[in-house]
Every structure is written in structure tokens, then in C-alpha cells.
């Protein structure tokens, strides 16, 4: 192989996408040719230049921009939420909501929805739990809240947050989401909570998933027992 030929092969060689014989041919040439191997050496050095990450300001600015661009006219910008939260909590407490006069309740519910969604994105697991607790105040048919809860159920790193998401989803007409989640690998405690929810919601579509679960080899024994039991319960409810 001469330098002319290597010229066309070198980019692929450097990208590691040549098959072994071709790779060996280029390597041979490089071993013998200081000119071409100098180029390969430069390529290596390019890769050795240290990486950098941006400052934390970048993320903060991004979120400000996102909140600004996606806010509906009556919604407050992101930084106001903390103050609103403090005021709301001071006046109402956590489990409240029942004693609010009707006219005020819609606006407060919107603020709580925003808070819930924001809290679900926080680093702190306790904050995410708080976000989930706020969703109980939301409208049962709110798709955005339901999707946020499903995302927490399927992707949150904390088992406790996922368990709380199952609880919250029971009131949210999320049968499909709950059933889909059972098809994915999950922590056994969450699987049992999902099975409980499926039984409570009397969900027909989950029968197939439950049958698969109770026969699967990589599923916890206690979960399989619960799945078997659930199939019996659904049957007796007249679902099967």
C-alpha cells in the first residue's frame, strides 16, 4: 500500500471502521511511513486534548429561557414559584384544599400543577415526593400531570418516588400506563404496587401481562404469587 492509497483509507482507519485485513494493511504502511504516521499521531493528539463542561450558569439560563418561552400569560415566571409555594403552604398546609372557597380554587390548582411538575424535576427525592403529593390536587384527567407521573414511575432513580407515583396514578385514569409499566423490568416492590393498582382499577388489558409475569423466570417469587392471586381476583370480579 502506498501513500496515495492510504489517503482514502486513513479517515476510516482513524474512525475505527475498517475491517481487520484493511486495518492491518494501513497499520503496516503507517509503521513504515513517518509522513503518514505523523498524521495519525496528530489525530491521536487531537483526541487527547482534555474535555470541558460548561458552567452551572448555562443550565440555569436554559431553564429561565424555557420557563419564559413556555409560560402562558397568566403563569408566573419560574423564580416566583418558591415565593408562591411558601405563601400557599403557609396559608393552606399540605393536605388542605378541601376548605378553599370555589372561586380561589382554580387559580391555586394551576399554581400547584406548576409546582408539581417543577418539583418532579428536582435532585432531591424528598422534593419529588412533594411534587407527587401536589398532583392529588390536580384534575384527574390532566394529561400533562399524568404523563409526568408515568415518567416518574418508569424512570425515577428512587424506588420510593416510583411507589408514590403508583399511588398517585391510581386516581388519574392511567390504566394503560400502569399496565405498560408492568411489562418493563422493575423493582419487586413497585411491581406489587402496580399489580395492586391493576386489581383495584379492574383492568382487563393487564391480564396478558399478569400471565406473563407469573410465568417469567427473572421475576421475584413473591411478585409471581401476587400476580397469580391478582388473576384470580380479576376473574372473580367477572373481568376474565
Amino acid at each position: 500500500m502506498n501513500c496515495e492509497q492510504v489517503k482514502t483509507e486513513l479517515p476510516d482507519f482513524l474512525a475505527g471502521s475498517l475491517n481487520p485485513p484493511a486495518q492491518a494493511r494501513v497499520q503496516d504502511h503507517l509503521d513504515a511511513c513517518p509522513d503518514c504516521s505523523e498524521l495519525a499521531g496528530l489525530w491521536d493528539k487531537l483526541g487527547a486534548i482534555p474535555d470541558e463542561l460548561p458552567s452551572p450558569r448555562l443550565r440555569a439560563n436554559f431553564h429561565e429561557m424555557l420557563a419564559r418561552e413556555t409560560a402562558a400569560p397568566k403563569r408566573a415566571p419560574a423564580w416566583i414559584w418558591q415565593a408562591v409555594a411558601a405563601a400557599v403552604i403557609a396559608v393552606m398546609g399540605f393536605a388542605a384544599g378541601r376548605s378553599i372557597p370555589r372561586e380561589q380554587s382554580t387559580e391555586l390548582r394551576d399554581i400547584r400543577d406548576m409546582l408539581a411538575l417543577s418539583l418532579l424535576q428536582q435532585q432531591s427525592a424528598s422534593d419529588r415526593l412533594k411534587g407527587i403529593s401536589y398532583t392529588y390536587q390536580a384534575n384527574k384527567d390532566d394529561a400533562q400531570i399524568r404523563d409526568a407521573l408515568l415518567e416518574a414511575l418508569n424512570t425515577d432513580s428512587s424506588v420510593d418516588v416510583r411507589l408514590a407515583a403508583v399511588d398517585a396514578l391510581r386516581r388519574m385514569s392511567a390504566q394503560q400506563g400502569i399496565s405498560d409499566s408492568l411489562e418493563r423490568p422493575q423493582s419487586p416492590l413497585v411491581q406489587i404496587a402496580l399489580i395492586d393498582a391493576v386489581v383495584e382499577l379492574n383492568e382487563t388489558k393487564s391480564v396478558a401481562v399478569l400471565q406473563k409475569l407469573q410465568a417469567a423466570s427473572d421475576v421475584d417469587e413473591l411478585v409471581k404469587q401476587r400476580a397469580r392471586q391478582a388473576l384470580g381476583q380479576l376473574r372473580s370480579k367477572g373481568t376474565l
Binding site: 403552604i89 427525592a125 424528598s126 422534593d127 415526593l129 412533594k130 403529593s133 424506588v159 420510593d160 418516588v161 411507589l163 408514590a164 419487586p188 416492590l189 421475584d220 413473591l222
Partner: peptide
């Protein structure tokens, strides 16, 4: 006083 908690075990 302001923060929820959760303890879970199989």
C-alpha cells in the same frame, strides 16, 4: 417539618 419522607422494604 416541611419535607416528605418514605421508607420502603420488600
Amino acid at each position: 417539618a416541611r419535607r416528605p419522607m418514605s421508607f420502603s422494604s420488600m
